[in-house]
Write a protein that binds this DNA or RNA. Structure first.
Lengths: 131, 131
DNA sequence: ACCGATAGTTACGTGAAAGGAACCGCCATG
DNA sequence: CATGGCGGTTCCTTTCACGTAACTATCGGT
């Protein structure tokens, strides 16, 4: 659906629907732009992981933020959570179809960022020097 | 450059480079994910606008946030700012080449969000009902 | 009896981001 | 002479995302 939209059509999607607070695009994007969301989605894109594996894979994340971010991603339907009744119980996280589908445009952005951060860095330095 | 990257290669881009604080991908993405950034970039994609025109186009933004967001986008090289010595002086904002280049992957995400917010909404409702 | 690993939850604190309101200089118009 | 539009800046407050630390429960091993 909506295969190609003009910029102004997209703008209207973002800006309309009454107040901006209720804007559907904003509501979806906010769930993706958390500090750890992209990182975890990329990790899970490779293969499903268990909670502890994710902790070791992303050492800077706290236990609390890992739980919370995974819950948020699960709530939005990007990630599934499966509990195996082993002892001690193990919990597997992985991407849903919706998650994979969303990851495609998201990785487009990640690739752009990793390919262009030099240009952005230069722009920043130039701007700051012009001060 | 980096035409195709595996997920794990992307993950390494995000997670490596020593501490996450210095991660280049994160540094670039944070400049894009502000509350008003996407909205303004989409607006400027249509055509250059003056400060006051942008205010009227995005009525919910405060003067302060409009100035600040435009400055941030200018600093990162996505937006140019041109002052015309009319009276009173008028200031035009528009996308740079870098801005247009970044907007392509970004609109991919916006299109995904506008096409799939129903699915996300359903996932949220289902999750919340399951309690 | 105690320690570590599993996968969390709860309470509390903090800094960055965002919002609100007022103020600024300049000029043109009524 | 003062009012309004232009393009901001400054100060103050609030909100929220994120962080730290401690606590939970169950089981296996030593």
């Amino acid at each position: 659906m909506d295969a190609k939209m003009t910029f102004s059509a997209q703008l209207r999607m973002v800006v309309d629907n009454g107040s901006l607070e209720n804007c559907p695009v904003r509501q979806v994007m906010q769930g993706i732009f958390g500090k750890w969301s992209t990182l975890l989605l990329l990790a899970l894109a490779e293969k499903p992981y268990r909670f502890g594996e994710l902790r070791r894979l992303v050492p800077d994340i706290s236990q609390r933020m890992l739980t919370q971010t995974l819950r948020d991603l699960e709530r939005d339907g990007y990630v599934y959570r499966e509990v195996y009744p082993t002892k001690p119980p193990s919990v597997e996280y992985g991407l849903t179809e919706l998650g994979y589908s969303m990851l495609k445009p998201l990785t487009g952005l990640v690739e752009w960022a990793s390919g262009n951060f030099e240009a952005v860095k230069e722009a920043r330095d130039k701007f700051d020097r012009a001060g």
